[in-house]
Amino acid sequence: MYFCTYVLPKQMMNVGLFIPCYIDQFYPQVAIATLKLLEKVGCTVTYPLQQTCCGQPMANSGYEHLTGGCNDNFVRNFADCDYIVSPSGSCTLHIKHHLHATNETAATAIRSRIYELTEFLTDVVQVKTLEAAFPYRVGLHQSCHGQRGLHLAQMSELMAPPFSKPGQLLSMVDGLELVQLDRRDECCGFGGTFCVTEEAVSAKMGKDRVADHLRHGVHYITGVDVSCLMHMEGILKRANSTVQVRHIAEILTATL
C-alpha cells in the first residue's frame, strides 16, 4: 500500500512512458519501477509499444543526419501524450535538444513536453512525500546530461544556490543516508560510444568515480541515468565489489 502527497488529483496526467532502448533490453526492472512510481503518484501511464531509441548513439557519434527514421518513429509513438517521461536524463536531453521530424509541429510539441523522471516528479507532479524505505548509505551520481543539460541539480562550476531534484526525492525515503562525495558532479566517463572509442580514459574515469563512492562507504550508487550506472556497475563487478547500483526509480519505490 502506497501513500503519497501530490498536488494534482489522481488520474489527471496522461503520461507516455519512454523507455530508452538499453533499459528496455538490459534493465527492465528500472522501467518497471518507473512505471510503478508514476502510477503511485497518480499518473495514467501508457507505454507506446513501437518505440525504439532516441537516436543519440548515432547523433553523438556525429551522425545526427542518420537519425531521421528514429525521430519519425519517436514522433509516431509519442505525439498524442500530454507528457512524456523517461528514466534517463541523457535520452530526455537528446530529445529536448535534437528531435526534428517530418511532422515538425508534433516534434516541437514533444520537445516541450518531455521530462526526465525526477524533474517530472518534483516540478510537474510536485511530490512532497513518498512512502518508500531504503535503509542504506547511498551515493548519488549526478549524471552530466541530466545535471548540466536539464539542470536537475546545481552545477559545482556555477556560483549559484544549491539544489538537487533527485536529492530532494531521495530525502523523502526512510532510512536512506545520502553521502557527500569528494567530487560531487564529476563525469563517470560513460559518454555513449566514448566508452568504447576512448576505452582507456572512459574506464579510468569510471574507476575514479566509483572509488569516490567507495571511499565514503556507500552500499549503493544511484542516479538518474542507467547508462552511467551500467558503466559503474561493470567496474564494480570487475573489482568483485559488493556495492551495487540502483536507478533512482528503484529506490523511490523500495519498501522494507
Partner: peptide, 26 residues
C-alpha cells in the same frame, strides 16, 4: 570488446521491458 577490457557486461534479463509490459500490464 573494448567494454570488457576493464568492465563486466550487464547481466542480460530473460525478457525485455516491452515483453513484461505486454504480459503483465497491457
Amino acid at each position: 570488446n573494448p567494454w570488457y577490457t576493464q568492465r563486466e557486461m550487464p547481466e542480460p534479463p530473460a525478457e525485455s521491458f516491452r515483453d513484461w509490459y505486454i504480459n503483465n500490464k497491457k
